[in-house]
């Protein structure tokens, strides 16, 4: 019944971030790439909150709220871009839009 070790929280955040990074690099479907970005942002927020809990300060949660705001703005623009990509190319493959101008 002890306190949760901060290192383990940070290790978990790192593992989640690596999983998200691998997903971002491996998958070519734009929706899955956005999901992987969400996983990575969430892992960053977890690291902030774990560090904030270590020092018993509210700064970690404040930074988590900022990360959350950024994720919401990013995902709204990203999903609008996904819809544009699908209307333009009729596919969700990110490699289909590899050329900036054709």
């Amino acid at each position: 019944m002890g306190q949760i070790p901060t290192e383990h929280g940070l290790i978990l955040a790192g593992l989640l971030f690596i999983l998200g990074l691998v997903g971002l690099l491996v998958r070519r479907n734009v929706i899955f790439m956005l999901l992987a970005v969400e996983i990575m942002l969430n892992a960053a927020g977890l690291a902030f909150v774990a560090a904030g809990a270590r020092w018993n300060q509210p700064d970690g949660q404040v930074m988590f709220i900022f990360v959350l705001t950024m994720a919401a703005a990013e995902v709204s623009v990203g999903l609008a871009l996904v819809l544009l990509l699908y209307q333009e190319f009729k596919t969700l493959d990110a490699d289909a839009a590899s050329r900036l101008r054709d």
Partner: peptide, 11 residues
């Protein structure tokens, strides 16, 4: 569990 109840609700 980390004591960040506000962040948990936000999540």
């Amino acid at each position: 569990l980390l004591g960040a109840h506000f962040a948990a609700a936000f999540e």
